[in-house]
């Protein structure tokens, strides 16, 4: 793939993290699905805000993303604290 050379550390970290979540919730695909939904909602909000050039306040803040993921990953402290390493302003 074109990303193979000069792969940013963030990319590798993200791949490892997604794999970890998939493995951890192998028997609960709905948890993984919910996690993806949270991420995609966050991304959509960020994009809306960017396109509006400051005239749009995202309805999903980093704190809310973190809170939603915390609820999803309850009793999985390691996954949650690792998620905090990705989130801006966490």
């Amino acid at each position: 793939t074109p990303l193979q050379n000069n792969q940013p550390v963030e990319f590798n970290h993200a791949i490892n993290y997604v794999n970890k979540i998939k493995n951890r919730f192998q028997g609960q695909p709905e948890v993984y699905k919910s996690f993806l939904e949270i991420l995609h909602t966050y991304q959509k909000e960020q994009r809306n805000a960017k396109e509006a050039g400051g005239n749009y306040t995202p309805t999903l803040t980093e704190q809310q993303v973190y809170a939603q993921v915390a609820q999803l990953f309850k009793n999985q402290e390691d996954l949650l604290s690792e998620f905090g390493q990705f989130l801006p302003d966490a």
């Binding site: 993200a14 791949i15 990705f86």
Partner: peptide
């Protein structure tokens, strides 16, 4: 080797762009 679906890849994309943004805001 990784068995990644397009959805997984998009999760990786979102997470890594979040991390980049975080790094940019910290430096």
């Amino acid at each position: 080797s990784y068995d990644f679906t397009p959805l997984d890849s998009s999760a990786v994309y979102v997470l890594s762009s979040m991390a980049r943004q975080r790094r940019a805001s910290q430096s």
